[in-house]
Simulated assay, not measured.
Amino acid sequence: MKRFEYKTIEIKPKGTWTWKFDIVEIDKILNDMGSQGWELVTTESRDMSGTAYGFHYTFKREI
Rank of each mutant, 00 (worst) to 15 (best):
Q36C: 05
I11F: 11
H56C: 06
I29T: 13
I29C: 03
K60W: 05
T42S: 15
N31P: 03
T18L: 10
M1G: 14
F21L: 07
Q36K: 15
R61D: 07
I63C: 09
W38G: 04
L30K: 03
Q36P: 00
T51A: 10
S49C: 03
L30Y: 00
M33E: 13
F4V: 04
I26C: 02
G54V: 09
T42Q: 14
R61N: 04
Y57N: 07
F55G: 00
F59A: 02
R3E: 12
S45W: 00
T43Q: 15
D47C: 03
G37I: 10
E44P: 01
L40G: 03
K7D: 01
R46M: 14
G50I: 05
Q36D: 10
I23C: 00
W17V: 04
I63A: 05
I9M: 06
F55T: 08
E5L: 08
W17K: 09
T16L: 14
G15E: 04
L40A: 12
T43A: 11
K7P: 01
Y57H: 10
M48H: 10
E44G: 06
P13I: 05
W19V: 02
E25G: 01
E44A: 13
S49V: 08
K60P: 00
I29Q: 07
G54P: 02
E5H: 09
T58A: 11
D27Q: 09
D47I: 02
S45G: 09
